[in-house]
Amino acid sequence: MSLIEVKDLERTFTVRAKGPGRRRTTREVRAVHDLSFAVEAGEMVGYIGPNGAGKSTTIKMLTGILVPTSGHLRVSGLEPSRHRTELARRIGVVFGQRTTLWWDLPLRDSFELLRKIYRVPEDRHRRNLGEYLELLDLGDLLDTPVRQLSLGQRMRGDIVAALLHDPEILYLDEPTIGLDVVSKGRLREFLRTLNVERGTTLLLTTHDLQDIEALCRRVIVIDHGTAVFDGDLAGLHREGGSTRTLVVDLVDEAPPISVPGAQVRRIEGPRQWLSFATDASAAPIVAAVAASYDVADLSIQEPDIEDVIRDLYSR
């Protein structure tokens, strides 16, 4: 049995609006429909889509906040909406634009309150807290009120708060929003370590596609409430028809380079751009260019995942 099982999931909302005169009209909005996927223990999955695609609605159903209109949904063998209390002990949730910490209390007190809420044994709490504080560099901030923390510090505090009870699954909704480059790098490295050393399953929703490239081996793309892609990053690039690029700087200007497996897309003086398939090896192309042309320098440009996703959304 998969850790997360979603099959033919649907969630509709009734929207009321003012009509002509004093009359009110109602209409049904399908936020999620015909959605199916499964997540195995230990996976790191990116769950992405445009605004209004149904991402947040899905997360709310997975955590038990919302009840599905129809379909099959199990998390850790439990039906989330019927076993919210039991499930809460097995999951952690971090919302980038909200905090689970107490605003006027020091970090230390927030963590202690959460220990009591989740009934975590003191020794386990102390061990987990010490490890996470070290990994996320928060040890010097334990006595600082949450309201005085920077956004990056508060986000790291929320991550610690979500993990102190050893959840099997961590849901992350925009965890790096508003963070600087250094804070993003530190948080990504921590999440990789968490997945490798503790086997925690991560489901990540974000508009920062660099998070996806840095962390996730698998991507689920949702649009209009249903999955339009489910696979690895290489498959996503193939779906989008993206290509890799070999940039060749020749010693002197020359006619378009002709080698098997690549095609010249652009020429500027002695520099030429050759495109080739994302799943093809660059080695034979580089060897063929070096054997037949006088090369000053060369480099490989990987396809931009944002362009791939943008094209997928537009279709």
Rank of each mutant, 00 (worst) to 15 (best):
Q148F: 02
Q148R: 10
L149W: 12
L149C: 13
L149R: 10
S150D: 14
L151S: 09
G152W: 00
G152T: 00
R154E: 09
R156W: 10
R156G: 06
R156T: 07
G157D: 08
D158M: 08
D158A: 12
I159S: 01
V160I: 15
A161Y: 05
A161N: 12
A161P: 13
L164K: 03
L164V: 06
L164E: 06
L164W: 03
D166S: 05
D166E: 05
D166H: 01
P167D: 01
P167N: 00
E168L: 02
E168F: 03
E168W: 00
L170Q: 01
L170C: 00
L170I: 00
L170A: 02
Y171S: 01
Y171F: 05
Y171I: 00
Y171V: 04
D173K: 11
E174W: 10
E174P: 10
E174S: 12
P175A: 07
I177S: 12
G178W: 07
D180E: 04
K184T: 13
R186T: 14
R186V: 14
L187I: 13
L187D: 06
R188F: 14
R188G: 09
E189I: 03
F190P: 08
L191C: 07
R192M: 13
T193W: 05
L194I: 11
N195C: 12
V196T: 14
R198Y: 02
R198K: 15
G199N: 10
G199R: 13
T200E: 11
T200W: 07
T201L: 01
T201E: 00
T201Y: 02
L202H: 03
L202E: 00
L203N: 01
L203I: 06
L204V: 15
L204W: 03
L204I: 15
L204R: 05
T205S: 14
T205I: 08
T206D: 09
T206C: 10
T206I: 08
T206F: 05
H207E: 05
H207K: 14
H207Q: 12
D208L: 04
D208V: 10
L209Q: 05
D211Y: 06
D211R: 09
A214K: 07
A214Y: 08
L215K: 11
R217N: 13
R217S: 15
R217E: 15
R218S: 10
V219I: 15
V219H: 12
I220G: 07
I222A: 07
D223N: 12
D223L: 04
D223G: 05
H224C: 03
G225Q: 00
T226V: 05
A227Q: 08
A227P: 11
A227K: 15
A227E: 14
A227Y: 09
V228D: 09
F229G: 11
F229S: 14
D230W: 08
G231T: 09
L233C: 10
L233I: 14
A234S: 13
L236S: 07
L236I: 11
H237Q: 00
H237A: 00
H237G: 02
E239F: 04
E239V: 03
E239M: 07
E239K: 15
T243V: 11
T243I: 09
R244V: 01
R244E: 02
R244C: 02
T245P: 00
V247A: 05
V247C: 06
V247H: 02
V248A: 05
V248D: 04
V248H: 01
V248G: 06
D249T: 02
L250N: 02
V251L: 12
V251R: 15
V251F: 08
D252K: 15
E253D: 14
E253W: 01
A254S: 15
